[in-house]
Amino acid sequence: MARLEIKKTYKIYIGGKFPRTESGRFYNPKGIDVNVCQSSRKDFRNAVVVARAAQPAWAGRTAYNRSQILYRIAEMMEGRRAQFISELELQGSSKKEADEEVNATIDRWVYYAGWCDKYQQIFSSVNPVASNHFNFSVLEPMGVVTSTAPEESSLLGISTIIATAIAGGNSLIAIASESKPLCSVTLAEVLNDSDVPGGVVNILTGNKDELLPHIVQHMDVNALVYCGSDKKVIIDLKEKSADNLKRITHYSTDAILSQRGESPYFIKTLNEVKTTWHPIEKVGAVGSSY
């Protein structure tokens, strides 16, 4: 008798745990015989709570530590290569395309792992003010970010939006590609195995159109990244985000999925510039009045 295959249950990822959606709803992505959670606004709300709680400690990690954790993600992905490839194939990629996407994704994690302890040096400044003060500007994570992954990609897209957010010290709720959600769940398992603290990355599957109105109106979300080119959606997000002036960014899918998806400016976009002043005592220095 042939052995009965063990099928995977695809769950969402909130606070380092893998619950099913609280709503109990599922959907079947087109052409794939898999039940995927259709997350609700309450799932999103729960994710924001854990993301908010996890963010300060994540930002407080040393840049070196964050860098190693991102690199660890790449290491873990190599071990899961076969699973990612088969999931990508299941979602319509050819073997070659799947292979390339996994390679590109792992390389992208390595790329952003390397930026964790460098982007500050590129984007910070010491400002030569015309008074006796030391003045410097540094980047600081915006806080809780919500990003929607590009619809066209199951793995590289969501990996890029996660990497760019967490490399810069943010915590994140990532909304997976609705039609190609499988890799996002497997990626969550990788993240959970890679010393990423629970709550720093949360991944929801489901219907973006359903979730976005709740995301954009959530008062405790600092920034929203939309990957896509639906003009109507972009206008709507910009309009509704005004309630708490959350930062709205939209990227074209092309930019994220091509080589252009590798740039420290993506990290910068999810950071605020903070400028600090402090007096410089001049006692004993040239021109001192004491």
Binding site: N127, P128, V129, A130, S131, H133, N135, S137, V273, T275, W277, H278, P279
Partner: peptide, 10 residues
């Protein structure tokens, strides 16, 4: 210090 401004300071 407080309320200091400078063109070089964002």
């Amino acid at each position: 210090t407080f309320n200091k401004f400078d063109p070089t300071s964002p």
